[in-house]
Amino acid sequence: MSFDNILVTHDDGVTTITINRPPFNLATPGLIDDLMAAFDELEGRDETRAIVLRGAGERAFCAGADIGHEKGPAGEGRGLRDAGRALVERIEMFPKVIIAAIRGWCIGGGTGIAWPCDIRIASDTAKFRAGDVYLGIIPSWSVGMVRLVNYLGRNRTLDLLLLGEDISAERALELGIVSRVVPDAAFEAEVDRVAKRLASGAPMPIRAIKEAVRAQCREGFDRAALLEEAWAQKIFASQDAKEGLGAFMEKRKPVFTGK
């Protein structure tokens, strides 16, 4: 795979997508197109079991949208908003686990890319900001005003969006924005460890858990319960279930095939 705005590399079951627009890795329609195309290819790549999404360099994961691309028809920026919403939906709906590896600034559209990821690992250098109201605009990729209350709750969402202050990695961990914070010197090793662990899991259960948790937020308790039983019938009859239980009894590492 070759793209203008991202780099894609593979290491066993882990694929890394690097936003390659340093130093700030600003979001543009071209970047979003590349990310969407990469996800399309990786969904069908059986060897890819987990994806790491990161920014090039150390200054930023993604420091927001490129202002030069904000203006759309009638000055409304609708094209970039629609593209951003489609990317957020793709990340949330993606059947494989996605890990955001966040170093440096993560601002505006960058938070829209990072926060919907399944696991979010931050270097202690990471800083977050959702200060749209102090630019006279609103967050418009269906994260801050649509999903964030499900991630954080009403009060924390209002604090974050209305105050619009810089959030340290440690504060982000307290809020639940990130899964863990790692000293920068240990950041690469921890991202690699977590990604390889997730890549070693059984693909069907990972997909099932993502679908059911998403359903709890978007469709409610009853839909999640139906998904749980539908997936349970399929998974408990799968080859991977037999392999996992057999490996446990035999005290060996399981080899999952996704079947």
Rank of each mutant, 00 (worst) to 15 (best):
M1A: 15
S2Q: 15
S2P: 09
F3R: 11
F3D: 03
L7D: 11
T9E: 14
H10A: 12
D12V: 13
D12P: 04
G13N: 05
T15Q: 03
I17Q: 02
L26W: 04
A27F: 10
A27E: 13
T28P: 04
T28C: 03
G30C: 06
I32N: 02
I32G: 00
D33H: 10
D33L: 05
D33Y: 06
L42G: 07
L42W: 06
E43W: 04
G44D: 12
D46G: 14
T48L: 08
R49G: 10
R54W: 02
A56Y: 06
A56M: 11
G57E: 03
G57M: 03
A63R: 12
A63G: 08
D66Y: 12
K71M: 15
G72W: 08
G72D: 09
P73T: 13
P73H: 11
G77I: 08
L80H: 03
L87R: 04
L87A: 06
V88H: 09
I91C: 05
M93T: 15
I98R: 05
I99N: 02
R103W: 06
I107W: 02
T111N: 14
A114R: 04
A114L: 05
W115M: 13
C117T: 09
D118Q: 10
I119A: 04
I121W: 02
A122K: 01
D124A: 02
T125D: 02
T125E: 05
T125A: 02
K127I: 06
D132A: 11
Y134E: 06
I137V: 13
I137W: 01
P139F: 00
S140H: 01
G144H: 00
R147I: 00
L148Y: 00
L148G: 01
N150M: 04
Y151M: 09
L152H: 03
R156P: 00
R156F: 05
L158Y: 03
L158R: 07
D159A: 11
D159N: 11
L161D: 00
L162C: 06
L162H: 04
G164R: 00
E165N: 11
D166C: 00
S168T: 14
A169W: 02
P183M: 07
F187L: 07
E188T: 12
E188H: 10
E188G: 10
R197F: 15
R197T: 14
A199L: 06
S200R: 07
P203T: 01
M204Q: 14
M204T: 09
R207Q: 14
K210H: 10
V213Q: 10
R218D: 15
R218T: 15
E219P: 01
E219S: 14
R223F: 02
E229L: 12
A232T: 15
F236D: 12
S238F: 07
Q239L: 13
A241Y: 15
A241N: 12
K242F: 14
L245V: 10
L245S: 12
G246K: 12
A247F: 05
K251H: 13
K253I: 11
P254I: 10
V255K: 14
